[in-house]
Design a protein around this nucleic acid. Structure first.
Lengths: 152, 152
DNA sequence: AAAAACTTTTAGGCTAGCCTAACCTTTTTA
DNA sequence: TAAAAAGGTTAGGCTAGCCTAAAAGTTTTT
């Protein structure tokens, strides 16, 4: 059983997850900076998330995830990684891919997410196997380059 | 110059565009039903859109798009169609593809949208040309079927 | 250990979108 | 054509997220 939290709450959970896995706990400031909001806003969200039992948070203390919060964050992160990889396969520039993966990772139907996931797995797993994907990707790349040239 | 309207405003414009092209004008009720909101909410948005010169709207009258509104609606619809097609290529069931295309069509970076578009064009345009795409798609389809079987 | 610098919290405000309930207007129908 | 039904509008409210400014707490520096 996963979510039932808002899109924005998912963002907060994912960011906390990332910061915590880097340095053990997250400060309000880290969260605020990562999400481009003011500290006051991050505090407000922490209160909500604590109330929903998703984060451990005490005034002036570091923030960590509860098991339930972590569970959600992991699902969200997995989705995020799929979309990021996916956009890279589609030859979207890396910085933009990172930004837009955030947007994709919300709200989509589980079946849609499943197909995105399969697409990525298919492409990645085929790198060693028969050459179809490689050739296909090569063709796609060339197609894009050609489009790029005719644009200028 | 296209947008600068909210995601939700884009939804309203696209729906109005669709209804108008079907029957010449849109009633508040049509809009409200299509977007799953109450009539009062649709009226409120019409006032905003009128104020931004995107719709022609008078109390108790039918709604149509201004040239500017139409311009935006067309861009939004084009994006929508690309994503719909895209999800179908990814073998997402049609009804879900339609629903989720709505979600994809917002907020993405122009470069990302460009790559989605190219992907779709590449796949579609290659149906007559060399067999790479076809074979590739065939392989992807088989991969998915296999996954599907091992799920049950 | 007090001052300075930084971080966090609180309080009060704002906007976008949505809702309900009550009230108009327009259309249909007996 | 008047009454009923359907459709549209207004007013007042609500929530999620975000903000600023000022207060309060914590950490670092001297």
């Amino acid at each position: 059983m996963a979510a039932q939290v808002s899109r924005r709450a998912e963002d907060y959970l994912r960011i906390i997850y990332e910061v915590v896995s880097r340095k053990g706990y997250a400060r309000i400031k880290d969260i605020a900076i990562s999400l481009n909001v003011k500290p006051a806003t991050a505090v407000e969200m922490m209160k909500k998330l604590k109330h929903e039992n998703l984060v451990n948070y005490e005034k002036y203390g570091g923030v960590t995830l509860t098991p339930r919060g972590k569970e959600i964050a992991e699902i969200v992160k997995k989705r995020h990684d799929v979309f990021q990889k996916f956009l890279e396969i589609l030859l979207v520039p890396k910085d933009i891919a990172s930004k837009d993966a955030h947007i994709l990772e919300h709200q989509l139907d589980p079946k849609t997410i499943l197909q995105f996931t399969r697409f990525v797995e298919f492409v990645v797993s085929s790198s060693e196997r028969p050459k179809f994907v490689e050739r296909w990707m090569e063709h796609f790349r060339k197609y894009c380059e050609q489009q790029e040239r005719s644009k200028i």
